[in-house]
């Protein structure tokens, strides 16, 4: 990979981390309402995958999707404005944290129903085959979705009809307060997909290079062979499920252990050790991102609320 590209992955991860920190802060200050599910800890997964695809490929996520939206190049100011419920937000303030959309950037949401994005991803894959283009779809979802009917119906059809969808299970070990092993007859998510006769793989989701490598391979093969794949990225969310989560179901030690594997410092060290970037260059990036996030908050803060009549707009096309 080019030096620029490697450094850009760092920039993306730092952007997500700082943006999410700031969003958490803004939530506490009452600027953001509803549910807020932060992506902190999982940055390497979104960045590793989304950096591996083309602008005309599609991305679809669940409700923990700010990180994916930012990695897709959506404007931080407009993502923050969406969180603030402002009309300049990516979904005009109608969607909120769980429903970020940017159709121009081929970011297809933002879905709050567990597993709900998986059939949609299959539908997009169907359309790609229908039009005979060589795009791919990346579909992100959590370990919780593995137990929904939509998961199994989608994977079966994707495999049967050879749909170009890369299903990425972000296994952060918990769905709300429930550990995956308490609710899955098989403790690995990828094995749940294996029976649909598709390529499956498990990757360290705390290592952006490992994720990127898996993503590159998956994208190349999916584009070439028009077959779906399933990749389980083992990762961890450092914050609660949402801002309201008391977090009693996991220990401080466990969180601390996973913090040792924080994808951002790890990658930072790698870049410096390999002489890809100097400490100074990375510090400069950090400050640059601070500014971007500050500007995003300011943009959101200063943006107008939706006008009352917008309530009735966009119900129908």
């Amino acid at each position: 990979m080019e030096k620029n590209e490697l450094i850009d992955m760092y920039r993306q991860m730092v952007l997500i981390r700082k943006f999410e920190d700031s969003a958490g802060e803004m939530y506490k200050r009452g600027k953001i309402g509803g549910f807020l599910h932060l992506y902190i800890g999982q940055e390497a997964v979104a960045v590793g995958f989304i950096s591996a695809i083309r602008p005309d490929d599609y991305v679809i996520g669940a409700y923990r999707e700010h990180g994916q939206a930012l990695a897709r190049g959506m404007e931080p100011g407009r993502v923050m404005a969406e969180l603030f419920g402002k009309r300049t937000g990516v979904s005009k303030g109608k969607g909120g944290s769980m429903h970020m959309f940017d159709v121009e950037k081929h970011f297809m949401g933002g879905h709050g129903i567990v597993g709900g994005g998986m059939p949609l991803a299959a539908g997009m894959g169907f359309a790609i085959n229908y039009r005979e283009t060589d795009q791919v779809v990346i579909c992100f979802f959590g370990d919780g979705a593995v137990n929904e009917g939509a998961f199994h119906e989608s994977l079966n059809i994707a495999s049967l009809w050879r749909l170009p969808v890369i299903y990425v299970c972000e296994n952060n070990l918990y769905g709300m307060g429930t550990a995956f092993e308490r609710v899955s007859s098989i403790p690995q998510a990828f094995r749940r997909a294996q029976c649909y006769d598709m390529e499956v793989e498990s990757v360290d989701g705390m290592d952006v290079l490992a994720v990127r490598e898996a993503a590159d391979r998956a994208v190349r093969l999916t584009r070439r062979d028009r077959t779906p794949r399933f990749i389980e990225a083992i990762t961890y969310r450092y914050r609660g499920h949402s801002m309201a989560d008391p977090g009693a179901y996991r220990t401080k030690e466990e969180i601390r252990e996973w913090e040792q594997r924080d994808p951002i410092p790890k990658y930072r060290h790698y870049l410096i050790d390999q002489h890809i970037a100097t400490e100074q260059e990375l510090n400069d990036i950090d400050s640059e991102i601070d500014k971007i996030v500050e500007d995003a908050v300011q943009f959101a803060e200063e943006s107008p609320e939706p006008a009352p009549e917008e309530l009735f707009e966009d119900v129908y096309a």
């Binding site: 309402g33 509803g34 419920g85 979904s91 303030g93 969607g95 939706p306 009352p308 009735f312």
Partner: peptide, 16 residues
């Protein structure tokens, strides 16, 4: 309720 899907934005939600 107004005849729309629920918007996120606080002022719109309240008005619905």
């Amino acid at each position: 309720l107004e005849d729309v899907p629920m918007p996120y934005s606080k002022n719109l939600e309240k008005s619905a």
